[in-house]
C-alpha cells in the first residue's frame, strides 16, 4: 500500500515547504514541486512516522505551542547558567552520569524529551531508549531543578496525561 494517509500528509508538508522556499507561483514551479514532493514521500515511505508512534497532534496544538514557549524560556535560563559557569575565573563543576526512568510513552515524545533534556540547564542526554535515559550533569545542585522541570509537565500534558 503505497498511497496511505501518511504518505499523502508527507507530500502536502513537503509541497508547502517547496512553495515557501521557491516563493513563486509559475505553473512550471507548481507542477515540478508537486512531483518532487510525491517522489520523495513515496521513496521515504518506510521512514515516515506512523499514527501509532505519535500522540494525537492536531487536537493538541495548543499544548504544543505552550511547550515551545516554556522550552524557549528554559533555553534562555540554560544559557545564562552556561555564561555563569564559563566566565567564572574558577570552574565550579562536578560532572556526573545519572540514569533516570523514561517517562514518555510515544516514540515521538521520547525524541522531543531527549532533545529538551539537552537544552535544559546543566543536563545533557547521552542515551535515550524506551525504558531509561542516561544524563550527564554538570553539577549536583542542578539535579533538583531537573526533577521538577516545567518542560516535563508540559510535555506530559501534550501526551494527554494530567501530571
Amino acid at each position: 500500500m503505497i498511497f496511505s494517509k501518511d504518505v499523502l500528509g508527507m507530500t502536502i508538508i513537503l509541497y508547502i515547504f517547496w512553495l515557501l522556499i521557491s516563493w513563486s507561483l509559475h505553473w512550471v514551479n507548481l507542477v515540478l514541486g508537486f512531483s518532487f514532493a510525491l517522489f520523495v514521500a513515496i521513496f521515504m515511505a518506510p521512514e515516515i512516522i506512523t499514527k501509532e508512534e505519535r500522540p494525537p497532534f492536531l487536537a493538541r496544538g495548543f499544548f504544543f505551542l505552550r511547550f515551545v514557549l516554556i522550552l524557549i524560556k528554559e533555553i534562555i535560563k540554560a544559557n545564562i547558567q552556561v555564561v555563569q559557569i564559563v566566565l567564572s575565573p574558577k570552574l565550579k563543576i562536578n560532572p556526573q552520569f545519572v540514569e533516570v526512568k523514561q517517562v514518555m510513552r510515544y516514540p515521538v515524545t521520547q525524541v522531543i524529551w531527549g532533545n529538551s533534556i539537552t537544552l535544559t540547564p546543566g543536563t545533557l542526554s547521552i542515551d535515550v531508549d524506551r525504558e531509561k535515559v542516561l544524563i550527564h550533569f554538570l553539577s549536583e545542585e542542578l539535579m533538583v531543578h531537573f526533577e521538577e522541570s516545567p518542560i516535563k509537565a508540559a510535555l506530559m500534558e501534550f501526551e494527554g496525561r494530567s501530571k
Binding site: N79, V82, L91, I93, T118, G122, L124
Partner: peptide
C-alpha cells in the same frame, strides 16, 4: 570560550549545544 576552557568532551558539549 566554553569549548576552549572546559575539561572533557561532555562538558564541552554543554557549551556547544546550549549557546
Amino acid at each position: 570560550i566554553g569549548v576552549l576552557r572546559l575539561p572533557d568532551v561532555f562538558c564541552r558539549l554543554h557549551a556547544n549545544t546550549k549557546s
